[in-house]
């Protein structure tokens, strides 16, 4: 197999401008986000403490702050979803320490309930890589270097998809008690069929979970305008 990451490809994937334009709104990669200041982490309420400690123990302060910084970008995507009257979930995909894709829930807009943030971000990547004429083996190799940061535990559908793609690692915000596929309902991140070529991926939850939950709470207090009529009507404010 020829070496799959030619210098040219790498340049294209990580433009110097450090700006990733998305369909909805440019995601700015401010330098402080890549190497976050202590104060920025201090202003946000800490996630589940045990997760913080285990993370810090396993990867050190610096890496933990990086994780928080990427989760903040995912939360920004979730807020865009919220403002678009979508269930507020957002994510970013990171490779070699840089954000290479992002996505947010678009289920209402598309009337396709499978258009979750993860699926959107994955399709952005596949489009990019196909334009670069990467082969399937190369794309598979790329996914195996990708880290996903998503504000809510991937559902069973997304957890399965991430397993099929062979993603390296997933960090999520709040758990998903009803649909979660990374431990809550099923554990698809550890249950892939080895003989069929499936690989497990590491999954860490509780990163800025409170922020993710409060977005959900705000959203459901307003009422999902696209829920079927008999179930929930949008609450009208005075």
């Amino acid at each position: 197999m020829r070496p799959f990451l030619l210098p040219k490809v790498r340049n294209h994937l990580h433009p110097k401008s450090a700006t990733i334009s998305t369909q909805s709104r440019p995601l700015r990669l401010h330098p402080c986000l890549r190497r976050p200041l202590l104060s920025s982490a201090a202003t946000t309420p800490p996630p589940v403490l045990s997760t913080v400690f285990s993370l810090m123990a396993s990867c050190g302060d610096r890496e933990y702050l990086d994780v928080v910084a990427f989760m903040k970008l995912a939360l920004e995507q979730a807020k865009i979803a919220f403002d678009s009257l979508e269930v507020p979930v957002g994510c970013v995909i990171v490779m070699d320490g840089k954000v290479i894709s992002c996505g947010r829930n678009r289920t209402n807009e598309t009337r396709n309930a499978t258009r979750h943030a993860e699926m959107e971000a994955i399709d952005v990547l596949l489009d990019q890589w196909k334009k670069l004429k990467l082969s399937k083996a190369e794309v598979s190799e790329m996914f195996s270097k990708c880290y996903l940061y998503v504000t809510c535990e991937p559902c069973i559908m997304c957890a399965g998809a991430l397993s099929f793609l062979g993603i390296k690692e997933v960090y999520y915000g709040c758990a998903n008690d009803k649909f979660g596929g990374c431990g809550s309902i099923l554990s698809l991140h550890t249950m892939s069929c080895e003989e069929a070529g499936g690989k497990s991926y590491k999954c860490t939850g509780g990163i800025m979970a409170e922020e993710a939950v409060s977005l959900f709470r705000n959203f459901y207090e307003l009422g999902n305008p696209n829920a079927p009529k008999p179930h929930r009507q949008p609450v009208q404010q005075p």
Binding site: F82, D83, S84, E86, R106, N108, E109
Partner: peptide, 25 residues
Amino acid sequence: QHDLAEIDHVEPALTSPSPKKQKTI
């Protein structure tokens, strides 16, 4: 919903929807 979903992508993400927006819904 399609048009509805395209409201205010350009607005700052941090502002929460105003009562006016509720009316739009």
